[in-house]
Amino acid sequence: IHGGTLRASDDFPVDGYLIDLSPNSWASSTEEEIREGSSLKLNLQLTSSSSSYNYEYITLRDLMLDSNYRGGGISVINSLRTSIDNCYIAHFSTNGILVQGGHETYIRNSFLGQHITAGGDAGERNYTGTAINLMGNDNAVTDVVIFSAAIGIMASGQANTFSGVHCYNKATGFGGTGIYLKLPGLTQTRIVNSYLDYTGIVAEDPVQLHISSSFFLGDAFILLKSINGVANGVTIVDNMFSGSNKGVDIVQLEGPFTQIDQVVVDRNSAKGMNIKATVARGSVEGNSSSWTVDFNPVLLFPNLIKHVQYSLSSSRGSSFPSHALRNVSENQVVIESDLAVLANVFVTVDQA
Results as ranks from 00 to 15, higher is better:
S288C: 01
S288I: 00
A277I: 02
I275F: 01
L80N: 15
V293L: 03
H2L: 01
S269R: 09
S49E: 13
S49R: 10
L44Y: 14
S322L: 06
E36C: 02
I179V: 15
N109C: 01
F92R: 06
D261I: 07
G176E: 09
G3P: 03
N344L: 04
D294E: 03
R281I: 08
F346M: 07
D10V: 09
S22M: 01
T30S: 15
L300V: 10
N228R: 11
E254H: 07
H2G: 12
V328Y: 01
L60N: 11
I34D: 13
S110V: 06
I97P: 11
E104K: 08
D20C: 01
I1Q: 03
A150S: 14
S269V: 12
G119N: 10
V279D: 09
A159E: 09
Q351L: 00
H115V: 12
Y55R: 14
S337T: 10
E32D: 14
A131V: 04
L304S: 10
S213Q: 11
V145R: 10
Y180F: 11
V237Y: 06
G164P: 05
N303Y: 04
G136Y: 05
S83K: 11
N95P: 02
D249M: 00
S213P: 00
D205W: 06
A155T: 15
T199S: 11
L186Y: 13
D20H: 08
N24F: 00
S311V: 03
S322I: 07
S22A: 15
N232K: 11
D197R: 00
L196S: 06
V76E: 05
N239K: 02
C167A: 07
G255A: 05
T348L: 01
S315T: 12
L80G: 08
N95M: 07
T59Y: 07
M64S: 14
Y53S: 14
G123I: 02
F215V: 14
T94P: 03
Q262L: 08
F215R: 09
S319W: 00
V308C: 05
R190Q: 13
A159G: 00
S50L: 07
A150Y: 06
L312M: 15
E104G: 01
D205Y: 06
S29V: 03
V234Y: 05
N54Q: 10
G229I: 00
Y17V: 04
S314F: 07
Q100K: 12
S49H: 04
C87N: 13
A149E: 06
V76H: 08
I191N: 06
D143R: 05
T94G: 05
Q208W: 07
S50T: 14
H323V: 04
Q158G: 09
S319Q: 11
S9T: 13
Y53A: 11
L46K: 15
N274L: 14
I305V: 13
K225M: 04
G16C: 04
L300H: 13
G4R: 02
S25E: 14
E56G: 12
S156N: 12
D238Q: 12
H166C: 00
T258E: 12
R61P: 03
A122E: 08
F320I: 13
T128G: 12
N86G: 05
E330Y: 09
L223I: 08
T142I: 08
S38I: 03
S93T: 13
S22L: 00
V265W: 07
N95I: 02
L21I: 10
T199M: 00
G129M: 03
